[in-house]
C-alpha cells in the first residue's frame, strides 16, 4: 500500500514538473514571438518608414516542437503559443470552476413568489415549532426570490427563531 502511494507521489511530482517545464517553454516562445512581431509590424505613426524595416528572419527554435531544427515563422510560433496557453489556462481554470460554488444569476422580481414567501413565513409563525422539512420548503421559496428579498426573508426567519416566535432544530 505504502509502495503504491510512493509511486503515485513520484508520478504526481513528475507530472507537475512536466507542466512547469511546458509553461516556461510557452513563456519563452511568447517572448520570442512578441519580439518578432515588434520587428515585423510598422510603428503606428511618425516612425521609420515600412520600407526601411527589413523583414525578420525566421526564428530557429529548439525544444519539443523544434527538436528537428525546423525553422518556424513568427505566425507559426504564435499559433503554437496560442495552443499552449489555451491548454495551460484550461488546466488551471477547470478545477477552480468546478469548486467555484457558482450561484444563480440575478432573479427577476415576481409578486406571486414574494406572496408565497410571505404566506410561508406566516405558516411557520402559526406552527411555532418547525422541522427540517419546513425549513427546506422556506429556503426553496427564498431561493426563487431576488437577492434582496431572499436576504430579507432569511433575516425574518433568523430573527423569529432568535426571539422565540419560531422554534426549530435543523
Amino acid at each position: 500500500m505504502l509502495k503504491a502511494l510512493a509511486a503515485l507521489s513520484v508520478l504526481q511530482l513528475s507530472a507537475t514538473a512536466f507542466l512547469i517545464a511546458r509553461l516556461d517553454e510557452a513563456n519563452a516562445r511568447l517572448a520570442l514571438a512578441e519580439a518578432a512581431i515588434a520587428v515585423k509590424q510598422p510603428p503606428a505613426a511618425g516612425g521609420i518608414a515600412p520600407a526601411a524595416v527589413s523583414a525578420p528572419a525566421p526564428t530557429a527554435l529548439s525544444g519539443p516542437h523544434g527538436a528537428s531544427g525546423e525553422i518556424l515563422s513568427a505566425e507559426a510560433a504564435r499559433a503554437i503559443i496560442r495552443e499552449e496557453l489555451a491548454a495551460y489556462r484550461f488546466a488551471q481554470g477547470a478545477p477552480r470552476a468546478a469548486n467555484a460554488g457558482a450561484s444563480t444569476g440575478p432573479v427577476a422580481p415576481d409578486p406571486k413568489k414574494s406572496a408565497a414567501m410571505r404566506r410561508d413565513f406566516d405558516r411557520l409563525l402559526s406552527m411555532r415549532n418547525i422541522g427540517a422539512r419546513d425549513l427546506d420548503r422556506y429556503l426553496e421559496l427564498a431561493a426563487a426570490l431576488p437577492e434582496s428579498e431572499r436576504k430579507s426573508a432569511l433575516s425574518e426567519l433568523s430573527r423569529a427563531i432568535n426571539d422565540g416566535r419560531i422554534e426549530g432544530r435543523f
Binding site: 450561484s103 444563480t104 427564498a142 436576504k151 432569511l154 433575516s155 433568523s158
Partner: peptide, 26 residues
C-alpha cells in the same frame, strides 16, 4: 433551472440557560 445553485448555511444552538442562537449565511 439555469444550471447554477443557491446555497444557504446556518448555525444554531441552545445553552443550558435556554438562550437560543440562530444565524444564516449565503
Amino acid at each position: 433551472a439555469g444550471g447554477g445553485f443557491t446555497a444557504f448555511g446556518f448555525c444554531q444552538g441552545e445553552d443550558a440557560d435556554g438562550d437560543v442562537a440562530f444565524c444564516n449565511t449565503a
